[in-house]
């Protein structure tokens, strides 16, 4: 089971994307779990997920987040276009690839 954490400023717009990603996960029967958190709460979650995806509007937090996860898991910024289009499939594909490459 892969746990994917999406983070944005208030956790609102990422929760939109998460909803769509969960649908894809259910449809394709993928072994994954997706959730959204605002930046303020992200710290409490990063220890039990497999990847952190930042909304592009908080992409500037990447450096901080990488320090926080301490090299244990990959941190990536979601592509602006994919984010705007709420392209759940593409975001999931990229997330799986990033986790794969990270090993």
């Amino acid at each position: 089971m892969k746990k994917i954490l999406l983070v944005c400023n208030a956790g609102m717009s990422t929760s939109l994307l998460v909803q769509k990603m969960q649908k894809v996960v259910a449809e394709k029967n993928l072994d994954a779990q997706v959730e959204a958190q605002p930046l303020a709460n992200a710290m409490d979650k990063i220890d039990d997920v497999d990847i952190v995806l930042l909304g592009p509007q908080v992409g500037f937090e990447k450096g901080n987040m990488e320090k926080d996860v301490n090299g244990r898991i990959p941190v990536d910024v979601i592509d602006m276009r994919d984010y705007g289009m709420m392209n759940a499939q593409k975001v999931l594909d990229k997330a799986f690839k990033t986790m794969e490459d990270f090993k």
């Binding site: 609102m12 717009s13 939109l16 909304g55 509007q57 602006m80 276009r81 705007g84 709420m86």
Partner: peptide
């Protein structure tokens, strides 16, 4: 894109517009 972003837009969440429209 506007149609997709309509419902969140009503609640003042507009990242789909900001990044999708863009």
């Amino acid at each position: 894109i506007v149609k997709m972003a309509a419902v969140p837009g009503v609640f003042n969440i507009n990242e789909p517009i900001i990044f999708g429209y863009p």
